[in-house]
Design a protein around this nucleic acid. Structure first.
Lengths: 239, 239
DNA sequence: AAGTCGATAATTGTCGACAATTATACTTAA
DNA sequence: TTAAGTATAATTGTCGACAATTATCGACTT
């Protein structure tokens, strides 16, 4: 499963290819979050020169997957709870606006296509009832379509080109295949309705609530996990 | 006048310095919008190697001031009306949310400091009544403080690190020292009040209206200018 | 005369080496 | 034993050259 973002163009140069591999490695956690990056080591591993590697690193920095300090080096970004919440706040703002713009700017064909997609997902959903499939692919499909429907290059670039890599990273690392599938589906359905009605204000509000709900869901889950770990620690000490 | 963004750190490496110079050159229009960038030529001009120049170009790309195509080269972004409107839509979303977060997260000291700043600006404003100063420096000061007050690294990076360079570029190129100084001041004042009241919802709404008003103002001005030019053309043909 | 194909020139991508800076480990003194 | 200072090693920044790709110009065909 790749789930590449829809704005990306074919990787022609070797730096492009290495960038994609590194991106995958970081998102999937093969390169640990927060770990230091050794340019000579990585260059050797991918059999490329440091110049080419640095080109790839620059693109990783562009989508906020690594951080660089002058004369010190690069690190993979680390996944913190605060970072995750900040990311979702930003996402709420951007995707909410994208949804409003989609309601204003989507062509009728695009709207129809989205509705088709949703009914198709409904079939899949009924079929394998609540399986993570919808959450993974269907969810991303939906959100990408809305974002692209905004017809706003700035929004599209910021969300698809930058934020979503980080979101995927957090999803992988925190193991977030949250069991909101059926509820999310209903929310998606209402959002599409608002877009079809060309009701930008409602569309934005619904999208923001949709994302906020997702954020709160995660927040709950994580705080519970932390509580669980604390519990384990205490039991470990007792025994 | 530099009006550097408040998040930037000192430029230590030569690539950093060249980046800053290029950034300035692009924003101020010394390098024409839409023009092609010749790496050998620029490298020679700044007396640096192409590697170093490319490092600088990568940072310019990060703040969306240039665009690169593989095996073809870089161009300065061009300033279109559509691009400007898309930028302001995005800004409305991000800065609106930043303002909401500022209402929630700013310390009392930060709020007090902003209020001080505003009264000081009020003095300046009374002094030189309506002069562009407020529009230039005061306006940016205000917006930066709100954004930083959100205490959201993601928002801060996106707005200050990326969007604002473009905004400054558009301001320069389209000659936008709009005569909204006094009205903008009142709007700023109300926004600070909402922040001081910790009313996130109102703060966001006011900031969004503030930016939307600015956008509409520009929209009007530009369409008028275009109409004017058409008029001139017609007269030219007649004569 | 217009358009297409091919050779040449120019530009971008990639490479390996050196310079400058930072991190590490060891020695020395308190 | 701890701390500071210094010398060494490793890493990042910068450079110039070569390879690969693209753009330009001219010849040739229709």
């Amino acid at each position: 499963m790749l789930l590449q973002n829809p704005t990306k163009q074919a990787a022609v140069t070797t730096a492009d290819k290495v960038f994609e591999q590194l991106q995958f490695a970081i998102v999937e956690g093969e390169m640990a979050a927060g770990s230091k990056i050794s340019e000579p080591e990585l260059a050797k591993h991918y059999q490329i020169s440091r110049s080419t590697l640095r080109e790839a690193l620059n693109r990783l920095e562009k989508c906020h997957l690594i951080e660089r300090k002058a004369n010190v080096g690069s690190r993979v970004v680390d996944c913190t709870i605060e970072g995750l919440l900040e990311l979702y706040i930003t996402r709420e703002a951007l995707e909410g606006m994208a949804c409003r713009q989609a309601a204003l700017n989507m062509t009728d064909e695009e709207v129809a296509h989205m509705q088709d997609m949703l009914t198709q997902h409904a079939g899949d959903k009924a079929l394998q009832d609540g399986v993570a499939y919808y959450q993974e692919k269907g969810d991303l499909d939906f959100h990408y379509k809305v974002i692209l429907g905004s017809h706003n290059k700035q929004l599209i670039e910021l969300i698809c080109g930058q934020l979503y890599h980080l979101i995927r990273m957090y999803r992988c690392q925190f193991g977030m295949n949250s069991p909101r599938a059926s509820r999310a589906f209903d929310e998606h359905s209402r959002i599409i309705q608002a877009i079809a009605d060309r009701d930008g204000e409602l569309a934005e509000m619904l999208m923001r609530r949709h994302i906020a709900a997702s954020r709160k869901n995660i927040e709950n889950k994580i705080t519970k996990e932390i509580a669980q770990k604390e519990q384990n620690k205490i039991q470990l000490i007792k025994s």
